[in-house]
Computed example of a mutant assay.
Amino acid sequence: MTYANPDALVETDWLADHLDDPSIRVIDATHFAPAVDRDAEFEHEMRHIPGAVWFDIDNICAECSPLPHMVPPAERFEALCGRLGLRNDQRFIIYDALGGCCASARVWWMFRIFGHDNAAVLNGGLLKWIREKRPMEDGWNKPDATAFGAHFNDSQVRVWRQVKDNIESKVEQLVDARSHDRFHGLVDEVYLCKRHGHIPGSVNLPFTNIMENYKQDYVMKSPDGIRAAFAEAGVDMDAPIITTCGTGVTAAVPLLAMHLIGHDNVAMYDGSWNEWGNRPDLPIEI
């Protein structure tokens, strides 16, 4: 069975055949959390898929927010995408260097909320590309600056007040993509957080459960596999959903998975646990 929206995911062999297509722009969305001793900017310079530009989610974000990589205003998104030479008439193929397509799914979601639907995530990302011994290059691609246009659609974004109200109304289901131990407050968060646990009423669906043979293939599950993962977590796929995680990165993976199988009544709580857990006025469950 094929995906309902197959254009949101491309395979490595397809991209290899289209690297020279001027209507395609490859985007390296690699991002590492503070606990990971790796430098995404340096790694991009050392090796990346030919023609790729680096999309830094810690730069293309809201400047004044105390939270990491929050959605920026449309004007800033336009300007910084333009500096990367991105055009509205291009199709963006997005990848990252970690298994699970976390940051690439986040960037895919960002383009969608700013009105650019012609984007896809590379299934398996850079790890699969390298394992298949496909071409790489180093250095920096510096295309000419462009006038990229963006229009913000807030229907796919939730803020803490909306999530708090939803605890009572239960209009939307809250799906937390963090690991089991983080969801239950058994281990420290990746980003410094004063409290541990989860938002009341949320269900836990670790993003790794949506991946096929996680830590081996790093590819998205089949449509039936995705549905089974959501069903096992107790998620009603006929109802609206809010995804959340630690800082709004891995929450994009279940959001992408739901889009692939045709469920688009979904939004992301951008602040996620890094905001919620650091606010003593907001309720938590452990």
Rank of each mutant, 00 (worst) to 15 (best):
T2Q: 13
A228D: 02
P72A: 08
S104I: 07
G100P: 07
H184Y: 04
D144G: 14
H180T: 15
N265R: 15
R182G: 05
A105K: 00
V203N: 04
V175K: 04
L255E: 07
L86T: 12
Y191G: 01
E232V: 11
W160H: 11
N141D: 07
G246L: 11
R178W: 08
K133D: 15
I210C: 05
R131G: 15
W140C: 07
R279L: 13
Y218L: 10
N5R: 00
A257I: 07
M268E: 08
V249E: 09
R87W: 13
L9M: 06
G51H: 02
D89C: 04
H44G: 03
W54D: 01
A4T: 13
L80I: 13
I93P: 03
A252S: 13
W14Y: 06
T2F: 08
V157I: 12
V10F: 01
K128A: 14
V71D: 01
A177G: 00
V171G: 13
P6R: 00
H48P: 00
N59S: 10
L174A: 07
P223W: 00
A105F: 01
D224V: 02
L260H: 00
D270Y: 05
N274S: 10
E285C: 15
V121K: 03
E137H: 04
S179Q: 13
H31D: 03
R112V: 01
A228I: 00
I261W: 03
D188V: 12
Y269F: 11
A229N: 00
L255G: 06
L127V: 15
N141Y: 06
R227H: 07
D165C: 11
A233Q: 03
P223Q: 04
F32D: 01
C245V: 14
D39F: 11
A145D: 09
W273R: 01
P143G: 05
M220F: 02
G100K: 07
A103P: 05
E45K: 10
H184W: 04
I94N: 05
P22E: 02
F207P: 00
L122F: 08
P73Y: 08
Q216M: 14
M258E: 05
M211T: 11
V266I: 15
G100W: 06
C102Y: 08
F42P: 01
R279P: 08
W273C: 00
P73N: 12
E168Q: 11
L127D: 13
S104F: 04
T2W: 09
S272V: 10
R161E: 05
P280M: 05
D17H: 13
Y218K: 07
M46W: 06
A233N: 03
L174I: 15
R158E: 12
C245L: 10
E75K: 12
A229G: 00
W108V: 09
I286Q: 15
G100L: 10
G277N: 06
Q173L: 07
E275D: 09
D181Q: 14
T243E: 01
G271A: 14
A229S: 02
N209I: 10
A233M: 03
I226G: 01
P143L: 05
Q156V: 15
M46N: 11
Q173G: 06
W140H: 05
T2N: 13
R279C: 14
G99P: 06
A252T: 03
